[in-house]
């Protein structure tokens, strides 16, 4: 029987799943993911997690609950630092421990720590130590690792082209998969937030597809090249030390400065620690750029369609009117 590795469809899934999948498959293991977040999954998480936990981590509990009996191992690496500069939120760092001690009968958790500040080739060493659990064939591990890096690169490219993670993963796993054609859009928004929040259709009550339906083209942090972000470094008194927050804040700063989108929507979750700081940095920056429409949406476990969709529609209308007005006035003057 092949060994089954469980990967919850939450947190790092959106950024690294193809890499992990390729690696384990190459070693001859089967990868099992949880289903998309649903009411049941979230409710299971709410039951297990401490009440004050943020929604994404509550959902994570639910995802683990839903696959724990189907797998031999759970893959929840302790990704601490990948770029030598920024780390992850404390809840991320304690994720494997929370799962191990708060959920009953969890299978063995692979919680290898990856911190590039501690040693050279930290990522390779981490993957090597994971591989050694399953095989003694060093060459096989190396091959799997190289392939997984390649998969990650392909995946990031697809994201950069504007695919959303689920689509990109489908495309990777099945080259014949037809990507939906881009529809015509009148508006272009930057929708900024942590990938595990932004792309979770359930907790965001389908925010992205809703926007698409309203004729909005969407840019997320995955389509913001690092070179743009780097140029924004100076604008913060101190670097945000959380990887995702750093990307969100600086992408927002970029769009505020270059006005290459019609509006910016920031998505955050109730009781998120890092975001409590992020929100104000963005608020202050938006005060410096009153002409750029900006909205912050807070997701919680009871987010209802009605509330969020009304706000979205109102925002879209406002931006549309603004754009029309601008076009009209510029016609008058030209």
């Amino acid at each position: 029987m092949t060994i089954k590795i469980g990967i919850p469809r939450a947190t790092f899934y959106y950024e690294y799943f193809p890499m992990a999948q390729t690696f384990f498959n190459e070693l001859g293991l089967q990868v099992i993911t949880s289903a998309k977040t649903s009411r049941e999954i979230l409710n299971a998480g709410i039951q297990k997690a401490h009440a004050d936990t943020c929604v994404p981590v509550k959902a994570f509990y639910g995802h683990v609950e839903s696959i724990k009996n189907k797998v031999d191992f759970l893959f929840i690496p302790r990704i601490t630092c990948l770029n030598g500069q920024t780390v992850y939120c404390p809840k991320f760092l304690g994720l494997p421990d929370m799962m191990r001690h708060a959920i009953d009968d969890v299978p063995e958790i692979i919680d290898t720590c990856i911190d590039v500040r501690t040693t050279r080739f930290a990522v390779w060493k981490a993957f090597y130590s994971i591989g050694r659990r399953f095989t003694n064939d060093k060459f096989k591990i190396l091959k799997a690792y190289i392939k997984s890096l390649y998969a990650l690169k392909k995946y990031k490219n697809l994201l950069m082209q504007g695919l959303f993670p689920e689509e990109a993963i489908k495309k990777l796993n099945n080259p014949n998969y037809n990507i939906q054609k881009k529809q015509d859009s009148t508006l272009h928004f930057a929708v900024l937030g942590y990938p595990y929040t932004v792309y979770d259709e359930f907790t965001t009550v389908d925010l992205l597809s809703r926007l698409k339906k309203l004729g909005v083209q969407i840019t997320t942090i995955e389509q913001v090249p690092y070179s743009w972000i780097k140029r924004q470094h100076k604008k913060l008194p101190k670097r945000m030390f959380w990887t995702y927050s750093d990307a969100v804040v600086k992408s927002a700063f970029h769009f505020f400065e270059h006005k290459s989108v019609d509006g910016i929507i920031h998505i955050t979750t109730f009781a998120c620690g890092p975001d409590s700081m992020v929100i104000d940095y963005l608020k202050f920056e938006s005060q410096n750029h009153p002409d750029m429409p900006f909205m912050s949406i807070t997701i919680d476990e009871h987010s209802g369609e009605a509330g969020i969709h009304t706000r979205l529609e109102a925002f879209v209308d406002m931006v549309k009117r603004k754009k029309m007005l601008k076009m009209n006035t510029s016609e008058v003057y030209s």
Binding site: A49, H50, D52, K91, L93, G94, M98, A271, P274
Partner: peptide, 14 residues
């Protein structure tokens, strides 16, 4: 309230 490290600790303290 919302203190991230202590929420992690609380979870494990059970």
């Amino acid at each position: 309230f919302t203190c991230t490290p202590e929420i992690v600790a609380r979870t494990i303290l059970n």
